[in-house]
Design a protein around this nucleic acid. Structure first.
Lengths: 189, 189
DNA sequence: TTTATTAGTTACACACGTGTTACTTTGGTG
DNA sequence: CACCAAAGTAACACGTGTGTAACTAATAAA
């Protein structure tokens, strides 16, 4: 019963994704989102009681996808192939990574939000485990000095993913270059 | 003549710096700034006609300092010492780096702003030159493969500076670790 | 001590963001 | 066809941010 919807849940997440990438968390407004969906602001409030709950649900959704994507890596591969596989997957998640970084800045306007922020934070750790496993493997197989701090290596890889492609290299060579930088730094081999 | 000022230009830049680090560009308001200076909002408008001009002047000021600091590097040092020197100086500029990244998001509310944004952008290139010189030196002295793209190496070094120190390492060892990562990546030597 | 000048404050008008309420539209069901 | 329920809209109250104008306070010079 009732009349037809003007936008689906999928439309909503799509528009939210675009808008948050375009304007950032602070610039994200319900008016802009409504405009993107060709709908009045109040229509969105029929589905979500406030902006914060909408955004946190969006992030949980994206996080779920990210965790799945990274956990699907084939661990039987060699260290180097596994690294390459991981990098390619992390590249797919590039803007998600920054979006998810905004999660902590969402205001705790209701207990529901506080709760879901903790869920997100837990999933964030889950996201790191495939990367951690890779580092462990690298240490075992002699690619990485076991004395090295895992947090540091993790941070290093995450930061390296975000290098801007100012040179305009094709994606394949760009990823290959980044892999080389991660493995051997700027030094001549 | 006239009465005593309640805040100096130095106070203003200090408060602006603190506030923009605390709240980010979007969260920066004249009310918060005024509160930090223990002054009414209107008092600041006696010095600056609007928020944008204040922020762009602040950034030009900071940029000038950054360019000077990086240009003071001793180029007679060895490649590795010069890199270390550079890294230490870039660490001093850590929050400045992110602040200056916000420059492009300042709205062009007046032609003065558009003009100063271009000045900032030009100084941004100046900031890169010491780094570029270092890379060139590294290529000449055989530390770096000359075929490698300078933009990529530059981006790599800039990103690496921003690795979060989650492990809580002391600054000295942290910088040393980062230098090692830049030079040789995660690989065992 | 009077006065000019500069610094600062209070109060206003305006714009825009949020969330709610009362109303309208639209489609299936008895 | 009547009417009910879901979906949507318009309009309101409220908060907060910006920039301005009229007023007040303090200090140095005449």
């Amino acid at each position: 019963m009732g009349r037809d919807k003007k936008f689906s849940t999928h439309d909503l997440w799509q528009a939210t994704h675009e808008l948050i990438v375009e304007t950032g968390y602070q610039g994200f407004t319900m008016s802009l989102l409504a405009a993107k969906l060709h709908v009045s602001r109040a229509a969105i409030y029929k589905h979500y009681p406030n902006k914060e709950e909408l955004l946190i649900d969006f992030m949980v959704e994206k996080m779920r996808y990210s965790v799945t994507l990274l956990s699907e890596i084939d661990f039987t591969q060699s260290f180097e192939h596994q690294l390459r596989d991981l990098l390619e997957r992390m590249f797919q998640l590039k803007d998600l990574h920054q979006i998810l970084g905004m999660a902590s800045t969402i205001e705790d306007v209701s207990p529901v939000i506080t709760e879901k922020k903790q869920v997100l934070s837990a999933m964030h750790h889950e996201l790191y485990t495939p990367l951690n496993q890779l580092i462990t493997k690298g240490k075992e197989q002699g690619f990485i000095d076991p004395a090295r701090n895992n947090f540091l290596l993790l941070g290093f890889i995450f930061q390296t993913i975000d290098i801007p492609n100012h040179a305009g290299l094709p994606l394949d060579t760009f990823i290959a270059e980044i892999q080389a930088l991660i493995l051997h730094g700027i030094s001549n081999k």
